[in-house]
């Protein structure tokens, strides 16, 4: 039993992190896949969620705000709420403009959030980060606790998946697709474009914040160096596009596949001599970027293509014009 536990610890850990990425990927799918909103600041919403939950659930500490010792469930809900508030502000400012502006604005907000995390010691403990974040099920022995946390992540994915599938097939989801495909005709049909976009942006960002909180509880530490923001943002993007943007199952599958490739190649490169291990880390980023380009050019629908809701009164072809976004 003990041997089985050590043997399974790696895949369980891998699947947990992949599952957390799947949560963020589902969030991006609401924004990009459904509605065509470009968010380049995923890491910012991730950080907001992670820090909110960390501050609320850790034990009191003299150096930084927090130590409220609240239950993890409260942390997760509040993480979603704060990420949603940040998204509401930024979305309200930029969503009425073309999506390029939103993309630039999300880079800006992610950068400012990164600076806040790094410099506001009273709030986030600065570069030292927040340690000793509680993880649910810690009263269990280590391995069952790990499995239980994986089960919790899986359950959260299932809830988000079912909710999004229902949303996508409802009139709400159809309006989203209509806006993405042809904004003018959606407006002509009397749809409130700005409001629907704002809903998608806030909802997606809330899910990303939840992902951040789940990550903080999983690795039990959050700091500016805990994750590299751009890599997080980029990985989520590659996951969604590889898995199939617009398809919730594709988003989950893409997260698992890309994360498995990403962390298993790290396992290989770590065996190399120190100098080469460092260099091959960059090679991995380069290759994942190249993979994104190849998917965009050769297989733009991803592993699981988008399935329009039934019945299908819409033309399935890719839009050729500049109407998207």
């Amino acid at each position: 039993m003990a041997e089985l536990a050590t043997f399974l610890a790696y895949p369980v850990g891998l699947l947990t992190i992949a599952g957390i990425y799947a949560v963020m990927c589902l969030g991006l799918n609401v924004q990009w896949g459904f509605t065509g909103l470009f968010n380049a600041g995923i890491a910012g919403f991730f950080a907001v969620g992670a820090y909110t939950s960390a501050i609320l659930t850790t034990a009191p500490h003299p150096d930084y705000l927090g130590g409220f010792g609240l239950p993890v469930a409260v942390g997760l809900v509040c993480a979603m709420a704060t990420a949603g508030v940040v998204a509401l502000g930024i979305g309200w400012l930029t969503l009425s403009l073309r999506s390029d502006y939103l993309a630039i604005a999300t880079i800006g907000i992610a950068e400012i959030l990164r600076l806040i995390v790094k410099n506001e010691d009273w709030l986030t403990n600065g570069p030292r980060g927040i340690p000793a974040i509680p993880r649910p099920f810690e009263w269990l022995p280590p391995f069952p606790a790990q499995v239980a946390y994986l089960a919790l992540v899986a359950a959260i994915i299932a809830v988000i998946y079912i909710a999004l599938e229902r949303g996508l097939n409802s009139p709400w989801g159809r309006v989203m697709r209509a806006i993405r495909e042809n904004e003018e005709s959606a407006r002509a049909a009397g749809k409130d474009i700005m409001r629907r976009r704002l809903e998608a942006f806030v909802l997606g960002s809330m899910i990303m914040g939840l992902g951040g909180a789940l990550m903080a509880h999983s690795i039990k530490f959050i700091g500016p160096e805990a994750t590299e923001p751009l890599i997080v943002t980029f990985l989520v993007w590659v996951m969604l596009i590889a898995g199939g943007s617009g398809n919730n199952r594709g988003a989950i599958l893409g997260a698992v596949v890309i994360w498995a490739i990403w962390s298993m190649t790290e396992l290989v490169t770590r065996q190399l001599p120190a100098d080469w291990a460092l260099r091959s880390a960059y090679l991995r980023v380069f290759l994942i970027g190249l993979a994104l380009q190849i998917i965009l050019q050769r297989a733009s629908s991803g592993l699981l293509a988008e399935k329009p809701p039934k019945p299908i009164p819409l033309d399935e072809g890719e839009p050729k014009g500049r109407s998207r976004g």
Binding site: G36, F38, A40, S99, D100, A103, F234, W237, V238, I241, G289, L292, Q293, L296, S300, P319, K320, G321, R322, S323, R324, G325
Partner: peptide, 11 residues
């Protein structure tokens, strides 16, 4: 659509 170029340029 030109937004796809933006995704590519991010990569």
């Amino acid at each position: 659509p030109s937004i796809i170029l933006l995704v590519a340029s991010f990569g």
